[in-house]
């Protein structure tokens, strides 16, 4: 038996495979396809203090080996989540983690406080990296000061595991990671989507209602892998890697680069059962290379 378990701060994961926010609904949408309890964690859709309708349609454009989205954090607000969705998901036997976003520091704090009151939510992922909202979101995640201000405020009210999701749309992601680590984040997850754009030349119009959007899918993997490697070398807290992971081999690459856990996002749309295949594939890899534990390959990249 190989040991697949990992720890993110005080949070134990049965294996390093989680789902990325906004790509897996509340988990329930995928319950017909996989046994949700086989996952290390499920990060549910971005939640804000108040109801948000999100951006206008069209919100999606396919790109080579990827897609752009401009959903804009559509959700019914934290109170609706707590009253109507939480009761449906609280007994799923995995870590149910809520992705929290906001337009200002006060919103983040109030949302995190409400989530903290829900017993079966052991962690939040603070989204300071959404490229699709006019206020807040990525604005906080693109400067060390902005990132530090949100994390410091939320840390004061949120005692459980605090993960901070970083934006790749910056010059030096490692410095942002260090800034949030200094404010008490338990972990960083990266990358959120890369800002991109798509144009319909025949109609001379942008394909997204917001003109620009966030790029995800297999095409972003090399960028994500590079950033995970840079951040893992810069901070002491565990790093959660994501960005284009579509197979167990992809996942292993992120672990070797220094990620303690990984998230699968856009690949869920192409194969709704991909997460469990990645769990099985990591186990198969470890056996084939005679490792007893997934811990043995975290950061085990041999550079010389």
């Amino acid at each position: 038996m190989v040991d697949l378990s990992v720890k993110i701060g005080n949070l134990g994961l049965k294996n390093p495979v989680m789902t990325a926010s906004g790509t897996f609904g509340y988990g329930l949408e995928f319950a017909d396809f996989i046994d949700l309890s086989r996952l290390g964690g499920i990060i549910v859709k971005g939640t804000t203090l108040n109801h948000r309708e999100g951006n206008l349609y069209p919100r999606m454009a396919e790109t080579p080996s990827g897609m752009l989205n401009a959903v804009g954090l559509q959700n019914k607000g934290v109170e609706y989540f707590a009253e109507h969705i939480y009761p449906q998901i609280k007994d799923i036997d995995t870590n149910m983690i809520v992705n929290v976003s906001g337009a200002c520091v006060e919103d983040y704090v109030a949302t995190a406080e409400r989530i903290a009151s829900l017993d079966k939510i052991p962690a939040i992922e603070l989204n300071i990296s959404c490229p699709n909202v006019k206020q807040g979101g990525m604005a906080f995640g693109t400067s060390c000061e902005g990132a530090a201000s949100v994390v410091s405020a939320v840390r004061k009210v949120y005692p459980k595991t605090l993960i901070v999701k970083l934006s790749p749309n910056v010059t030096d992601i490692a410095s942002i990671a260090k800034a949030v680590e200094a404010e008490g984040a338990d972990s960083v997850s990266l990358i959120n989507t890369l800002m991109g754009m798509s144009i319909d030349a025949e109609r001379r119009r942008p394909r997204l209602s917001t003109i620009t959007g966030g790029l995800s899918g297999a095409c972003v993997k090399p960028v994500a892998l590079r950033m995970v490697w840079q951040v893992a070398n810069a901070v002491k807290i565990p790093v959660i890697g994501l960005g284009g992971i579509s197979s167990a081999t992809d996942a292993v690459e992120f672990l070797l680069a220094g990620a303690t856990a990984i998230q699968i996002g856009t690949a869920n749309f192409i194969d709704p059962a991909i997460t469990v295949k990645v769990v099985e594939g990591i186990e198969e890899y470890l056996k084939r290379h005679n490792f007893n534990s997934v811990q043995d390959i975290i950061g085990a990249l041999e550079v010389r």
């Binding site: 897996f24 949408e29 859709k45 749309f269």
Partner: peptide, 27 residues
């Protein structure tokens, strides 16, 4: 037949503006 990605109501890309707000066409 709005443009879709996931098909199961997870990605919120294919929304139509209805009297109840944005809802997923796929779900």
């Amino acid at each position: 037949e709005n443009m879709m990605a996931c098909g199961v109501g997870a990605c919120l890309c294919c929304v139509e503006d209805t009297v109840e707000g944005h809802v997923c066409v796929c779900k």
